[in-house]
Amino acid sequence: MSKFYWLFGCKPACDRPGAVCQDPRFIGGDGIMFYFHGKKDKDFCLLSDSDIHINGHFIGKRSNKGRDFTWVQAIGILFDSHKLYIGAQKVAKWEDSIDNMLIELNGMRIRVPIVEGQTSWWSQEARLDIQGQAETNNKARVKVEGLFEIDARVVPITLEESKVHGYDVTEDDCFAHLELNFKFDSHTEMVDGVLGQTYRPNYRSRVKMAAVMPIMGGADKFASSHLFAADCAVSKFGIVKGGSSREQRSTDEMNWLKNV
């Protein structure tokens, strides 16, 4: 089981395992930091396992460095028969008081009611629990029992960040995006994806740790056709059916690992 660090009411910790922040900066399940730039306006598999598949939608703009500046604008999660969307809405000028986070379950927007100063919403069918804080609309904790917890926060690119990093962000779009922390309650040894692969017990990072910006390559194999597609080359979603026994699951995993 992976460790999970987050103090509710604070922003996701970008220096802990399971983090996805900034231009996307990842902290893998192995604790190693790396960058995965992907490509703007494209979708990439962040994690794929037998019972869950998570894609990220990347936004960004061209730079003079030979690659796109990119950020994760939304994630699409497949589990059971459900589709869960968590995303940052496009805004020109950032206002802290405006709710810029959009959450949808199976295409229906979730409007979380305020209960005793906190926001709380529950779906028994999907085992989905969403919590937030009334005074900070752009933060939420999203949990599906037995599968995952995600702490999400919507943030903009500030003028200061833009100047320091050369993003050249203009007044018509502040590139609102997600900062995320993941905790996975269970996963198989087949788990894959940009982030997911780092949770394998036999995983060895291939990034150049001595580099100023250690970059994870392989964008082609992680590319998905859309946010809710499990068609990337490394997809494992549904390989082991939900009714399989633990023994059969273990056998399937070992057979798959022999061919890696």
Rank of each mutant, 00 (worst) to 15 (best):
H57G: 10
S97W: 11
A126T: 08
S250P: 13
H226Q: 02
S81V: 15
G166L: 01
S50G: 10
Q118A: 11
F69C: 10
F79S: 07
V91C: 13
K143S: 12
V207D: 02
P17R: 06
Q118V: 14
K90R: 10
S50P: 10
A176F: 00
C21I: 04
E125G: 15
E145M: 03
T188A: 04
K93A: 13
M190W: 03
S224H: 01
T119C: 06
D192C: 09
S2H: 13
F237Y: 01
T170H: 12
A233Y: 04
M108T: 15
I86H: 03
F26Q: 02
M108D: 14
S250I: 13
S48P: 11
V72K: 01
G242T: 07
W121E: 07
G146F: 02
G196F: 01
C14N: 09
T119R: 08
K183P: 11
V115Q: 07
Q131K: 04
A176H: 09
F36C: 00
K236G: 11
I27S: 04
T158N: 05
A126C: 02
A211T: 10
R204Y: 11
R109K: 10
D172F: 05
A92N: 14
L47D: 04
E160L: 08
D220A: 12
G87D: 06
K93L: 13
K208H: 12
E145C: 10
F58V: 09
G66T: 02
G18P: 07
V112Y: 09
I239H: 04
M254E: 15
G66A: 06
S205P: 10
N202T: 08
D43A: 15
P201D: 01
K90V: 14
A210V: 15
I86M: 00
P12R: 02
A74C: 12
S81Q: 15
S162H: 05
F44R: 07
Y167D: 09
P17H: 00
L159C: 15
Y5I: 14
D30F: 00
I157S: 14
Y35I: 08
P113T: 10
E125K: 09
G38Q: 05
R249C: 12
D192P: 08
Y199M: 03
M213F: 13
F79R: 04
R16A: 09
T188G: 12
G28M: 04
I130W: 00
N259E: 15
K61L: 09
A230R: 08
R25Y: 08
G146P: 00
P12Y: 00
G28R: 04
Q89A: 13
K143W: 02
F237L: 02
I114K: 08
V20D: 05
V91R: 14
R141H: 05
P113W: 01
I32Q: 04
E247T: 14
L227Q: 05
E189P: 11
K40N: 03
L159M: 14
D172Q: 11
A152V: 03
K11N: 15
K11W: 07
R109Q: 08
N259M: 11
G193P: 13
